[in-house]
């Protein structure tokens, strides 16, 4: 039985390939020739000239549109010397912007971490009505312009908004204040963690959790001992991207902040404030901090990716 199958399999390729060979007018290669030629002429390899041209083109493009602007940020920031650079950063307005940015990121990242894990868990491990809708909704902040989401919050929480009068009567201010900034930051960065975890959890399936259950683990033990360790690298990855966006968000925050220097300016808004005030060097000095944050994020992201792929089964 087995042998019959095996010989059947061997016969098959020749008979199915034969008509193609004939129609292409290619002489049938002896198996040995085919192997010898494989090394030199892979069917997907282009001539050397084309390859080099493509590589040089890509590098030129990267240099012109990515590296050059990035470098210019640091060159501009340090153009009046290190002393001036340090003095700009030591400015109380800059400090308050740093503080506000840390507050916004410090609240929105843990919140979205929680939301993200909960949403991904629900979507990946359970079947329920409205699952498709929830999956689509998670992507909403990505597909909508940040400025629009900012305006949406103004319409709901602003003085003329739906909830504005009710909130004002109780002395709660959301728009043009810190709570508004935190809220839009949460909204804009919502998808990062969930988007990262959903495919990961889906590919891992439910089997390990079920195994933990049959071994006597209660819900919490299953989560802390099995689920969380399995997703920790994906979660960290999502958190890092989420944090980068939370600190760098401009559009939505700009709409709800009201630009009160020293009170509702985050770092990106402060860069704009300095730039509009013709303090170019100051603007670039602050911008250089955000750029450094981006570089650190990239480095961490690369490190996690390496770690993650080395742990794959």
């Amino acid at each position: 039985m087995e042998t019959a199958n095996a010989s059947g399999l061997q016969r098959c390729p020749t008979s199915t390939l034969q008509p193609f060979r004939e129609s292409l007018n290619v002489p049938a290669l002896a198996p040995f020739d085919a192997v010898k030629n494989l090394g030199r002429h892979r069917p997907t390899t282009e001539p050397a000239l084309v390859r080099w041209l493509l590589i040089v083109l890509a590098l030129l493009f990267l240099a012109l549109f990515l590296v050059l602007p990035l470098l210019s940020v640091f060159v501009q920031a340090l153009s009046k010397g290190l002393g001036f650079y340090v003095r700009t950063l030591d400015d109380p307005l800059t400090w308050s912007a740093i503080k506000l940015t840390l507050i916004a990121a410090g609240i929105s990242v843990p919140m979205n971490c929680l939301f993200g894990v909960a949403a991904a868990w629900a979507i990946a491990k359970f079947d329920f009505a409205g699952k498709q809708v929830l999956t689509a909704l998670i992507d909403l902040p990505f597909s909508i312009s940040p400025v629009i989401s900012g305006f949406a919050y103004v319409l709901v929480f602003g003085a003329q908004g739906w909830l504005g009068p009710w909130l004002a009567a109780r002395g709660i201010q959301i728009i043009f204040a810190v709570p508004g900034i935190v809220l839009v930051t949460v909204f804009v960065t919502f998808p990062f963690v969930a988007r990262e975890l959903i495919p990961l959890m889906q590919s891992q399936g439910r089997a390990e959790e079920e195994a933990a259950r049959t071994l006597g683990a209660r819900g919490g033990q299953m989560f802390w001992r099995i689920t969380l360790p399995n997703i920790k690298w994906g979660l960290l990855y999502g958190v890092i991207l989420c944090n980068a966006r939370a600190m760098g968000e401009f559009g939505a925050v700009s709409v709800v902040s009201g630009h009160i220097a020293g009170r509702t300016d985050t770092l990106p808004l402060h860069v704009e404030f300095l730039y509009n005030g013709y303090d170019l060097t100051g603007a670039f000095a602050v911008a250089s901090m955000l750029t450094l944050l981006a570089l650190v994020t990239l480095a961490l992201k690369a490190w996690i990716e390496r770690k993650e792929s080395s742990l794959k089964l």
Binding site: A207, E208, E210, A211, A212, I226, P229, N230, L311, L313
Partner: peptide
């Protein structure tokens, strides 16, 4: 319970 694809805890 032993699962078809083992479901060992990979970490």
């Amino acid at each position: 319970f032993a699962f078809q694809h083992y479901a060992l805890f990979r970490h």
